[in-house]
Amino acid sequence: MDTATHVMTPEHDKQQVRRIWKAFWALLILTILELSLGLTIYFLEKGAPSAFAILSIKIIIIIFTLAKAFYIISIFMHLGDEKRNMIMSIGIPALLFIWFITAFLVEGNAIRNARNTESGTRQYEQKHIRHQPLNVPPGAENKYKVPH
């Protein structure tokens, strides 16, 4: 295996460092965009924004986050430079997240809908708990009867 030392030409070296800083600026700019969108939501919510507008902004923020994740994994962690087989052995199991996220969020939504139905909002009733006295003296049963 020749993972240890690569002979690096000064040209290649410079190119690598430039690539690293480029990724850094990309991450910084994406974060600033996310923050400005987050603040946009904050100021919009002082009025009465439409749910659709807020949802669209949030989806854009999620896309920016995925872009950031891509930059970190492919450039900082150098996964993009590995063998294709290895990328697949990590990337394919990670695809399970798609169903993981979808299933649980759909389930959460279904629980909320069930809670908001008539039977779902039924008040919890404290059941009367009966305590049975252990040693009831003969002839005194009535005194120890628990009212219900």
């Binding site: 939501i41 919510e45 996220i101 969020l105 959460g108 939504n109 909320r112 809670r115 908001n116």
Partner: peptide, 20 residues
């Protein structure tokens, strides 16, 4: 798993806290 369970609880509630 932690983050997704947070998401599920949040989706199942009618009210969630305002992070701002």
């Amino acid at each position: 798993a932690f983050l997704i369970s947070y998401g599920m609880i949040r989706f199942s509630s009618n009210y969630w806290v305002d992070h701002n």
